[in-house]
Design a protein around this nucleic acid. Structure first.
Lengths: 336, 336
DNA sequence: TTGAAAGCGCTAACAA
DNA sequence: TTGTTAGCGCTTTCAA
């Protein structure tokens, strides 16, 4: 089943079939119709391999992620994939999780096989050589959720997000505010833990509130990590914080569970705020600063499309990504 | 950068380069070495498009999933992807979630473009035409987690799993046992809800225990759904169940939270068991019947590889997939 | 074990 | 607007 058979059945040349099916180049309405009819009658679908070889375009985008088991990553992936599919593009998934050489393999072989037209890197701080390599083979690259030097990146302002969350607690009248930050091991790649901490500290300083070391604990962005960190922060009775800012919703969930296990009521005894607006945050009644990973994924695709298919879209403006405070029932004024 | 340049630098023909690099066909050690050296010196990586066109093999496998935001699916995906990558294969991801035509698009266009050598369908009951179409273009197909007529499928015995879970509760001495099953909307495709219910009923019948309609509630496999269902089951004081079998761990988590909110202690007042052995089950202390989605994904790849590259492996035997009771702290003898 | 050369199926420049 | 045709870069006979 090749383009030649379609051409024969439609009574035109293969070039016309190609033009009619791809949409590039001029084809008369009549010819287009004949081609479409013939193609559907034969159940013809173009061979990507042949098309790629001839045109140099694969209609395939690589998405590189550090993990698959975290809400943020899969949600970005979903947003990007949906938009790409609508544009007729495939998505090839490169998951870097694993014991060993995945990362090197991906960057030294998989991505260089001329299989993708572009790459989306999610929450990954690529190294200089990794970026260079991709640029060298002329592949557009866009980052989501993490800063990559010299690359168009879509990311929320993590400092501002943390500041907003902290200010919400300050605004409610809290003065003893704890922080569950991200540890650096679990996120070596994106400086998110540092930034969210900076925002926290900035807000505390502005409010002239003390930043107390014993009210700061690091965790690994999981529920369990948040649980442990909260137990640590809330354990001592004296000078216990009345509010906690957790750098992610999943850690905030853990903190809420820890509070309950300690016999503390949320929000009466302890207010808790997170970041993300995770699928389950509504269920937990968690106040949070929402970011919109699905939209972030889709926006990344728009940026790529502007480069890959300059005809139908101009480059989207480089606007900062939105975030938004969502007040629910996990925060309130302190009881005092 | 093409194979010709490598050939020139190595002082051999393009055919020899191809053979040396792909490993098929005989090449002298000397020639192979020269080729490898030249290739690495030039940073040469084969063009997949050209290779595919010439050989008819893409070294790419399509994985089709109904959602991305559930632990089971992403874990299967991760297991499959890791193994495929190790074999030098790419993974193209087809996520059917979305508002509309995704499914038709995927099966009528994306999968037919000769972009994949094989397809793995996760928790999807493909229709007759969908299967036929794939077979018609000669693409091996394997299913994970859901039965597909006429297709090699890897799935645990859901009836047996549910029976095992229920028998655990019966064995502890429970007689009033509730079920949180799956509703059919959220999983139209795999008959898992029905099967797990069958297993539950079989175990109850064997133990000569009554199956009471008010002790059965359906949910959508989410925490929130499990929470609601449990509230419903545990609300009435009289004849309240002393144990609940939830058809998934995420629903079981919800049930545990609901129990707490009702002032019930797990396991003293209510025992809860799930299915999956979710990442977080250990943290919640949830007793569960573990299945091993990562291994299921990897096993699916083994089946495909046996078909795609018959040389290096015989077809793995069609053994039933393992599952295993994991007793933790959410189940105990009833108090009575 | 190696090399020459004929495609694989399509696209895009060019000509008509 | 359409057709002719030369590649795209690789694999794989076939012959040596």
């Amino acid at each position: 089943m090749s383009i030649a058979e379609v051409a024969r059945l439609a009574g035109v040349s293969t070039a016309t079939v190609s033009r009619a099916l791809s949409g590039r180049g001029h084809v008369s309405a009549k010819a287009r119709e004949k081609v479409l009819e013939a193609a559907s009658e034969l159940g013809y679908v173009v061979s990507q391999a042949a098309s790629s070889l001839a045109s140099g375009r694969t209609r395939n985008v690589g998405i590189v992620l550090p993990f698959l088991n975290r809400w943020y990553f899969t949600t970005v992936l979903e947003g990007a994939q949906q938009r790409l599919m609508r544009a007729g593009y495939d998505v090839t998934l490169y998951n870097l999780a694993g014991d060993g050489d995945e990362r090197r393999e991906v960057f030294e072989h998989f991505l260089l096989r001329q299989r993708v037209d572009a790459v989306i890197a999610v929450s990954l701080e690529l190294t200089e050589p990794e970026v260079t390599r991709l640029h060298a083979i002329g592949k557009p690259l866009v980052g989501v959720g993490g800063p990559i030097p010299g690359v168009h990146t879509l990311a929320i302002d993590d400092v501002a997000v943390a500041r907003l969350a902290t200010e919400h607690l300050v605004g409610l009248g809290h003065t003893r505010i704890g922080l569950i930050g991200g540890d650096h091991e679990s996120d070596a790649d994106f400086h998110l833990p540092t930034k969210r901490r900076q925002g926290f500290e900035a807000a505390m300083n502005d409010a002239e509130l003390p930043i107390v070391a014993t009210r700061i604990a690091d965790a690994d962005f999981t529920i369990e990590g948040g649980y442990r960190a909260a137990k640590q922060l809330l354990g001592p009775l004296r000078e216990r914080p009345t509010a906690i800012f957790a750098a992610s919703d999943e850690m905030a969930f853990g903190a809420m569970l820890a509070a309950r296990d300690l016999g503390l009521q949320v929000p009466n005894d302890i207010s808790i705020i997170g970041v993300d607006d995770h699928d389950q945050s509504e269920f937990f009644g968690l106040t949070t600063v929402a970011q919109f990973p699905r939209e972030q994924g889709a926006a990344a695709v728009d940026v790529l499309m502007a480069q890959l298919e300059p005809r139908d879209a101009e480059m989207p403006a480089d606007t900062p990504l939105p975030f938004e405070l969502r007040v629910r029932s996990s925060t309130s004024r302190p009881r005092d």
